[in-house]
Design a protein around this nucleic acid. Structure first.
Lengths: 166, 166
DNA sequence: TGCATCCGGTCAACCACGTTGACCACCTGC
DNA sequence: GCAGGTGGTCAACGTGGTTGACCGGATGCA
C-alpha cells in the first residue's frame, strides 16, 4: 500500500460524477480505445502500427490522398505529414502515385497490405464498439456518438476538425 | 477550391454517422475542448499554460501530490512527471513541500497563483460545458458523460485510468 | 536490531516527433 | 505571360518524452 493510499482513498469513478471534467473523460476513453486497438493489432501480428496510421488508411480508402490533405486531417504541418507518409510507404501500407490532374502531387493509395491492415482495424474496431455496447447498451453508445457528433457539427458547422489530440 | 475538393465533396459530419469511428469523435471533441480552454485562458491573460497543468492543479487541490502520483495520473514516467512539476514550480503554480510521513517525498501543493488559475480554469470549463448544453441540451450532455463514465468504470473496475492521450 | 529490498527523487544521455524556414516545380487566374 | 498560390522536399532545431544508473529514506522480516 502506498503513502498516497494511506493519505486518502484512491479516486473512484462514479456514474455521471460532475466532478470529473468532460475533457478528462474524453481523454481517458480515447486513450482506452487506442491502446486496446493497438494491443489487439499486435496480438494479430501487426507490429509497428502507429496510432495515426488508421486515419490515413481510412482517408486513402475512398480516394488517393496527398500529404497536404493528411496534414489537414491530422492537424499537423505538411512536413510532419510527409514524414508520416514516408513511414507508411516504408511499412508497405501505401504507395505514392502520380496525379493526372496535378504533376506536383504524389497522392497516396493503399497497397494490398494496407487494405489488409485496414480490414483488420475495422474488424477490431467493431469488436471494441461491441464491447462498449455490452457494457452500457447499444442505445447509450448511440447517445454518446450522436451527442459528440452534434456538438462538433455545431462547433465546426459540419466540417470535420483535425483529429490529432494535443 | 482545392484539388481535393474537385476530386470529391468535402467530408461532412452527419448526426450519428456510424462511418466516423468513435475514437475519432473522442479525439476531435477532446481537442476541441482543450484548444478552446487554452484560447480562453490566453484571452484572460494566462499565457504559457500547458494542457496538462489542469490535471495536476486538480490533483493538488484536494491533497499534496507527489511526482510519482502525477506520473500515474498522466500515464508517463516519473522523470517526465518531475519535469512537468519543475515547469509548474517555475511558473509559480505549485510549491514543493516536505511530507511528515516520508522524508524522501516532495509533495506539490498549490500556491495562491495556482489556486487562482484553477479557479479560472473551472470557470472557463463551466462556460464550455454550458456551450455544449446550448448546442445539444443538458440531458444529452449528461448522456455523453454517463455513457463514457460507465464504459470506463466497466473497463477499469472503477479506478481512473491515465489521462494523457496517445 | 540489522539487513535486504522497495520506492521517491534526481541526473544524464538520448530519441521520437513535431516545428520553422527556405526553396523548387508546377498550377491558376488575371 | 506573369504573379501569386500551392504541393513537396531538405535541413536545422526544439519540445517533451524515454531509458538507465544512482542516492538516500522507508519498510518488512529474521
Amino acid at each position: 500500500m502506498t503513502r498516497a493510499a494511506e493519505r486518502s482513498e484512491p479516486p473512484v469513478l462514479t456514474a455521471a460524477d460532475p466532478e470529473v471534467p468532460m475533457a478528462r473523460l474524453l481523454a481517458m476513453a480515447y486513450r482506452h480505445l487506442v491502446v486496446e486497438l493497438h494491443e489487439r493489432l499486435q496480438a494479430r501480428g501487426w507490429h509497428d502500427v502507429r496510432p495515426q496510421y488508421g486515419y490515413v488508411l481510412l482517408a486513402c480508402r475512398d480516394q488517393p490522398t496527398t500529404s497536404v490533405e493528411v496534414a489537414a486531417l491530422l492537424g499537423v504541418s505538411k512536413q510532419a505529414a510527409a514524414k508520416l507518409a514516408e513511414a507508411m510507404v516504408g511499412a508497405g501500407l501505401v504507395r505514392r502515385t502520380r496525379s493526372d490532374l496535378d504533376a506536383r502531387a504524389r497522392p497516396l493509395t493503399l497497397t494490398a497490405r494496407g487494405r489488409r491492415l485496414l480490414a483488420v482495424v475495422e474488424e477490431v474496431y467493431a469488436e471494441l464498439e461491441a464491447g462498449w455496447a455490452d457494457a452500457i447498451g447499444r442505445s447509450r453508445v448511440k447517445a454518446v456518438r450522436s451527442g459528440l457528433t452534434d456538438v462538433l457539427v455545431s462547433a465546426y458547422d459540419g466540417a470535420l476538425p483535425p483529429v490529432r489530440p494535443i
